[in-house]
């Protein structure tokens, strides 16, 4: 590692820190994009098997080259701008969708030391950046000058704003018990506890004492992602394809990439905040990045499983779930956690 740093210092001189940061960004974004490509493959395969089909199986062995072929096809297709569309906003909207999905990765830790920017308020940063993602969807719906797209955008805006409230409250519970906004410290906080002392680390992670918040976060996360069963913004059978109905080629692909990159992001956040991040579930196995990836994979398969299992929520039921079920649960549990922390029974000292 030192040899690489010395070599870089010699070749680039003063700008080496900037170049080194760029290299680290590439090292995060490139595997992420590959992960996105193969997540689409996994989704088609998993849902295929759940529905007693085979899924993609023609391009390469087990259809493994299918995502590459899809990507190539989308790259070569023409981007059609509808004649009534607002051209500038129409082009900017997909960029606004993907930029936050990538920017959020700047503060994600992969283990205790491997993180691009270990800032103090990383949880706040994540909340702020992910809340910007909705603009891509709203603006694409507005700029398309199409009724279906506009309806999709309106639905999406209302949905994301409502579920962000519940999501924010569940994160507040996490930061109360961890006493920190830093993701690395949140994970390190989960390594301590009575069960961790017995070598049963997975019972000390946040998911158990904060079980209602874990469920609220997971479900609100699915809703924030516009994933089934909360995909009213796309709702194929109701509003064709919702906000991206007018998009084609790479502009469409950017929305797609953003959605799947966000899926991986929410899976990572769930793993870090509630499932102990890179901590090993049992005492006799070492901690490591592989555990984080295993947990992410588990949450991602949950998302796919949801999609193959549940029918789409009706719009009013969706709003009811967000405001009348999750919000009261969050408010009650916030008080419960606060009282618990101040009582002699507190497990977070």
């Amino acid at each position: 590692m030192d040899a690489v740093m010395n070599l870089g210092q010699g070749v680039f001189g003063g700008v080496w820190p900037a170049v080194w940061t760029l290299i680290k960004i590439v090292l995060i974004v490139a595997p992420l994009m590959l992960g996105v490509a193969y997540l689409t493959w996994l989704e088609r395969k998993v849902i295929g098997y759940m529905q007693v089909r085979i899924g993609p199986n023609r391009v390469g062995p087990w259809g493994l080259i299918q995502p590459i072929a899809d990507g190539l096809k989308l790259l070569l297709k023409e981007i059609v701008v509808p004649s009534g569309a607002n051209k500038a906003v129409f082009i900017i909207a997909p960029m606004l969708a993907i930029a936050p999905a990538l920017a959020a990765w700047a503060v994600i830790p992969f283990n205790g030391t491997l993180v691009l920017a270990n800032i103090d308020a990383s949880l706040l940063y994540i909340m702020a950046i992910t809340s910007i993602g909705v603009y891509g969807i709203i603006l694409s719906g507005w700029a398309s000058n199409s009724k279906y797209a506009f309806l999709g955008a309106m639905r999406s805006a209302a949905q994301m704003v409502s579920y962000e409230v519940a999501m924010g409250f569940s994160l507040i519970c996490v930061l109360m018990v961890s006493n920190s906004l830093n993701l690395v410290e949140i994970v390190n906080g989960q390594a301590e506890g009575r069960f961790a002392g017995y070598g049963l680390g997975f019972l000390s992670w946040n998911w158990l004492p904060l079980l209602p918040m874990f469920l609220v976060y997971l479900i609100s996360g699915t809703a924030e992602l516009n994933r089934a069963p909360f995909d009213v913004a796309e709702g194929e059978s109701e509003i064709v394809a919702g906000f991206h109905v007018e998009y084609s080629g790479m502009a469409f692909a950017l929305f797609f990439l953003a959605e799947y990159a966000n899926m991986i992001l929410v899976a990572t956040l769930t793993s870090i905040l509630f499932l102990g991040g890179w901590l090993s579930p049992v005492g006799f196995l070492p901690d490591g990045m592989l555990w984080l990836f295993a947990k992410m994979f588990f949450v991602l398969v949950l998302f796919l499983w949801f999609r193959a299992t549940f029918p789409r929520y009706r719009y009013d039921q969706l709003m009811r779930l967000g405001w009348k079920v999750f919000l009261p649960i969050c408010l009650v549990w916030l008080v419960v956690v606060g009282v618990w922390m101040m009582s002699p029974l507190s497990i977070w000292k």
């Binding site: 308020a121 706040l124 940063y125 909340m127 702020a128 950046i129 809340s131 910007i132 909705v134 704003v161 962000e164």
Partner: peptide, 10 residues
Amino acid sequence: IAIILVYVGA
């Protein structure tokens, strides 16, 4: 971060 979270995000 708060101005982005509250004003831009909501």
